[in-house]
């Protein structure tokens, strides 16, 4: 997935962190079991958030076991078992990663292309398997991807329009979780706002690269419209970060409204941490160019 949805670790309690990790661990194992060994390496903490929301909405308890794991073979860690049913999160992770890889094939960078070529064969079968189970969702995702390609070709879309495909994708992913019509609508809007957050953060993260390679980026359109000149060297200009700040803040404000209305009881503290602290913290890290894709803060960069 994208890797921008994570908890602010410094503010998690120890046992919360263990639960968070065990969910991640459980999804990883589930992916291995159902989709094959290679797919598990593409997992990110985004899926753990999705799984926590899923469990919380369904009011399921988490079943954990001490197990060994391939990433840390020397010690046993807490791991959510299949009794918790994390299949939705792992399927969505596979669906989204597959489309991401397809998208990377069109990327100009050689490294990304190569990685996509190497990984795609492993995902073909997994993707088909996930598709069978979540047909409408996979259709919505591929539709959104097509929209994304069209927007990137057009190269004129403003920020709202540019966010739409990712936002619609997340809207579909989260909307699927709701049981009643009200819950579905709230979760869908929650997902939409989350998608906007992801896209804007990603756009800022990629801005330097896109300026260097001459690729489309909605922030470049914003720069052109407002007469901001910047060659992509050094710090982000204040006007750009200010614009991203308000865009992110508006999305998160609307997201919080839905989150409050949903009133999820289970895993409340972890979800609170991610929604109120983690998202902003991650965005701040991106803004200060301290963001690390592998969910490990560089030493000394954690800010409280």
């Amino acid at each position: 997935m994208f890797g921008y949805i994570r908890a602010h670790k410094a503010y998690l309690r120890m046992y919360e962190y263990e639960i968070y990790r065990s969910v991640y661990c459980g999804i990883c194992k589930d992916m291995d079991r159902r989709f094959g060994f290679v797919t598990r390496f593409t997992l990110s903490y985004d899926a753990a958030f999705l799984a926590l929301v899923d469990l919380s909405v369904r009011k399921k308890k988490l079943a954990v076991k001490n197990e060994r794991c391939i990433a840390h073979p020397w010690k046993k860690t807490m791991c959510a078992t299949c009794g918790s049913d994390l299949s939705y999160a792992s399927s969505v992770s596979v669906l989204l990663t597959y489309h991401k890889l397809r998208d990377d094939l069109a990327d100009k960078g050689f490294k990304k292309k190569l990685a996509a070529y190497a990984l795609l064969p492993f995902f073909k079968k997994a993707y088909r398997k996930a598709c069978v189970r979540y047909k409408p969702l996979s259709e919505k995702i591929s539709e959104a991807m097509k929209m994304q390609v069209a927007i990137e070709k057009d190269k004129n879309a403003g920020i709202d329009q540019a966010c739409e495909p990712t936002a619609l994708m997340m809207q579909a992913v989260f909307g699927e979780l709701g049981k009643s019509a009200r819950e579905k609508a709230l979760l869908a809007r929650f997902g939409y706002c989350l998608g906007r957050y992801i896209y804007v953060t990603d756009a800022l993260d990629d801005l330097k690269k896109d300026i260097a390679q001459g690729d489309y980026n909605p922030l470049k359109i914003y720069m052109a419209n407002n007469g901001i000149e910047w060659d992509g060297q050094g710090k982000f200009p204040k006007q750009i970060t200010d614009f991203c700040d308000v865009t992110i803040n508006m999305s998160l404000g609307a997201l919080a409204d839905c989150y409050v209305a949903l009133d999820m009881k289970r895993f409340r503290d972890i979800l609170d941490n991610i929604v109120y602290l983690g998202l902003k913290y991650t965005y701040d890290q991106v803004k200060q160019e301290k963001f690390n894709k592998r969910n490990k803060d560089r030493k000394g960069t954690t800010t409280l």
């Binding site: 700040d245 803040n249 998160l252 404000g253 997201l255 919080a256 409050v260 609170d272 109120y276 902003k280």
Partner: peptide
């Protein structure tokens, strides 16, 4: 308010 970073329900 939202642009200023307000999020409802923040503990």
């Amino acid at each position: 308010n939202q642009r200023g970073g307000q999020m409802n329900g923040m503990p």
